[in-house]
Design a protein around this nucleic acid. Structure first.
Lengths: 343, 343
DNA sequence: GTTGGGAATTTACGCGCGTAAAGAAAAATC
DNA sequence: GATTTTTCTTTACGCGCGTAAATTCCCAAC
């Protein structure tokens, strides 16, 4: 903490009694210099608190230590949570994560990808908008930058995909709902932006068909990322057209379910599996708030830590492989059923 | 989109028939070159899609176009929301926002500030952890970088503070609750990290005293950012020790209130102002989810857009003033009462 | 047509660091 | 103690752009 400010590596080298290239080596990999030398540098570092200029460092490097994390909508706590874990892991691994949110807008996603390219990142975790993504822009980006897609799969883009096994999600909730009561109908948005929604509906249809049960899909209108409000308004319409085909509602995701529960509460419908309950409601994602809904939501949980871990290991092996895999890797992580009071 | 890849500004200058310094001028400020020249550059730009190297650009500049946004906990939708708006505004103003979350950890906040310093940002929006912040680290940072504090004020740090007028928040909720029913007790964490919590409690005490009413403060234990769970557990204890001093509970913030509502639901207590309701519950912040609680939460809302706007204009004038104000500016923005079903 | 001034060009240097090559020094090996 | 191996130093060049100074150009006004 003492002494004058160091301007550059040259000065710091002089103060630590070493040459600049040695210092440079140290900063690129502390293990690449002799332990005695390392000690001398770290001692000088403690005294003078020097940090090499990031811009000068990266300018001459084809690859930086930057890692991009792009999510479609950060105000959705699901993405905030997954981004948080990945970010933490990146820091621990010595990378500099940079977090971006597309805020649900195609134009912004494209801008982010273009800006990210200029940062020459070692790798990028990309959760694309999905249906709203500019496919050609994403494709161009993935050609330039080693990319691991997560959450939303877009066929053929990126070197790998890490996501949730939507079939497992729906299988677990439907199984549980069937063995504990009436088979569920499926509640979803008519035009979901996220491809997982389509996979979940198809899984529902197949599982019901395999079990010899009649499926019922309820589709509600609405655009954008205000899922709770879409679910709430949609459920009000459903209640207006009472009765439902079944007393059990399986929502495509927790945010819709939160809206559904709100609508039911507003209409005086009791939710749960006990006496006097009009409906059971279950869902998917284990949204951070779903344990605080009234009643608490029965849902299929993402294994947040597992997903984040798999993302990390995948990107690291991708980086070590020079940014390309011979074949595109797809990892689907199964769900964990969480039983709460709503179903 | 045609033609070969451009490697650097030199090549691009040749292709557009101009000199490199002119191109450089254009990228630093398109208005600084003659309109004819600008047209020629933009035409060449459309054909070849060149972007100057960020690292080389910033290396020789004392100030970049980077703007840092630091929030204490991004998985809290309140911060996600405010960060989203500020980010959008920065982009529109031609800056490159970079978003960081301290994830509630002092060490991480310090690391972020140190890393941010190295990016030579034009300015930074900082919502500090509060009680958990390393004051000396924040102080050092603010000396080096033009900083606007928001959300949590730390006396004397940064050139300006933009936040909410906690007195206005509490005034509005207490006034409403008093004129529509029993005066409220105040529900909060015993050791809140955020200084706003203390300001709100003090405001409550003063307002009650001024009105000649007896205040009741309920403090629940808990550490960290899991406010909903802290509120839920705390409320269960309160219900165990029934009755409350009053049938009206004013929570310090919406996330605590969400937990309180969950606990009440679990114990079969009806919330609201109607017949058969055991309690009224109100709160502060207008958290993005508080309109979907059961019942929907009566609360005092932040003027998100106003706060974001004020943050932006403050930072811009700070940047134009060369990074220093003669006196520290403090802006407090009043609340907007939102009446819903819970009180 | 002349003139003046803003705009563009040329020239030249600097930023802080990566990195390569060759030689010197230190450490490890026998 | 001599040899090999590893590590460090020296030297030198390059990255892509900012920026300043001096010159030349263009355009408009007179």
């Amino acid at each position: 903490m003492s002494g004058q400010k160091i301007r550059n590596m040259e000065e710091f080298a002089a103060l630590s009694g070493l040459s600049r290239p040695t210092i440079s080596k140290y900063f690129n990999d502390p293990a690449s210099v002799r332990s005695r030398t390392r000690e001398r540098i770290e001692e000088a570092l403690a005294r003078h608190d020097f940090r090499p200029n990031i811009f000068a460092m990266n300018q001459n490097r084809s690859l930086t230590k930057n890692v991009g994390i792009v999510v479609p909508y950060l105000a959705d706590p699901f993405f905030a949570e997954i981004a948080r874990i990945i970010e933490r892991r990146c820091i621990d691994a010595g990378f500099s994560p940079i977090l971006y949110s597309s805020h649900g807008q195609q134009k912004l996603e494209v801008e982010i990808l273009e800006g990210l390219t200029a940062l020459k990142p070692a790798g990028v975790f990309l959760a694309p908008l999905g249906r709203l993504s500019d496919r050609s822009a994403v494709e161009r980006f993935c050609r330039d930058v080693p990319t691991v897609l997560f959450d939303s799969n877009i066929e053929g883009m990126g070197e790998a995909f890490v996501g949730s096994d939507n079939v497992s999600f729906v299988q677990q909730t439907v199984d549980y709902l069937c063995r504990s009561g009436t088979p569920p109908c499926f509640f979803e948005m008519r035009t979901p932006a996220n491809p997982n929604a389509n996979k979940r509906r198809n899984a529902y249809l197949k599982i019901m068909a395999d079990a010899g049960l009649e499926p019922h899909v309820i589709q509600v209108d609405g655009e954008g990322w205000g899922f709770e409000e879409i679910g709430r308004r949609g459920m009000h319409r459903v209640i207006d057209a009472w009765p439902l085909p079944t007393n059990t509602v399986l929502c495509s995701n927790d945010r819709l379910a939160i809206g559904v529960l709100a609508a039911c509460y507003e209409r005086g419908l009791r939710i749960g599996r006990g006496e006097g309950c009009a409906l059971r409601v279950a869902s998917h994602d284990d949204h951070p708030f779903s344990r605080f809904t009234c009643p608490a939501l029965t849902t299929a949980a993402h294994e947040y830590e597992l997903v984040a871990d798999k993302c990390m290991t995948t990107l690291f092996s991708l980086i070590e492989a020079g940014g390309r895999f011979s074949t595109r890797e797809e990892t689907l992580i199964p769900a964990r059923l969480i039983l709460r009071a709503s179903a």
